[in-house]
């Protein structure tokens, strides 16, 4: 097929010229041996492909922000009970993500290390302002233990990951 308007060859299945919209003419093409290769029809709703997702870093950020807010509010129920429970939940979630990631557990390990850092900060805040950080300290120890377990599963990968993270 050809388009006389544009003076170009078109595929055999073309009914209109894609350049100008004119009807395609049933004239032998000038170029031979070109194989037609159609594209799939564009679907209105694009299918979402299922992809393995890494632990959502926003989980930790939101948890950290909430815990800091509870400290600022100064309510003992919030900072001594609810805050550690949230952090413990996040630590267990990250640990499970690490186990499920089949050798890519280091993403979770790094998140857990970050969480230990956040919990240490919260322990200090609780000690300084509220003189009581037992539950937060307990959760920090649990988080540290989970991190060590993840390290123990693949220590060489863990070390390599740290090198990559800290490379200058």
């Amino acid at each position: 097929m050809r388009c006389s308007n544009c003076n170009v060859d078109l595929g055999e299945s073309q009914t209109t010229c894609p350049l100008c919209g004119a009807p395609a003419e049933n004239i032998p093409p000038v170029l031979n041996g070109i194989k037609e290769a159609p594209y799939p029809e564009k679907t209105e709703k694009l299918l979402k492909r299922k992809e393995r997702i890494l632990p959502n870093k926003w989980v930790l950020r939101v948890a950290a922000a909430l815990c800091l807010l509870f400290c600022i509010l100064g309510n003992s129920l919030l900072y001594s009970l609810l805050s550690p429970m949230i952090l413990l939940g996040v630590a267990i979630y990250l640990f499970i993500c690490g186990l499920k990631e089949k050798g890519e557990l280091l993403h979770s390990a790094v998140a857990l290390i970050a969480q230990v850092g956040i919990e240490l900060l919260l322990v200090l805040i609780c000690l300084i302002f509220f003189h009581n950080a037992n539950t937060t300290l307990f959760v920090m120890i649990v988080t540290l233990a989970l991190t060590v377990i993840l390290y123990a599963i693949r220590p060489e990968r863990f070390t390599a990951q740290m090198k990559a993270l800290l490379r200058m």
């Binding site: 544009c6 170009v8 060859d9 078109l10 894609p18 350049l19 093409p29 170029l31 070109i34």
Partner: peptide
Amino acid sequence: FLRFLASQGVPVHVETNR
């Protein structure tokens, strides 16, 4: 572009995804 290329004596075959 493609019309000009064709006018220069270069036979062109056109395909598109639309």
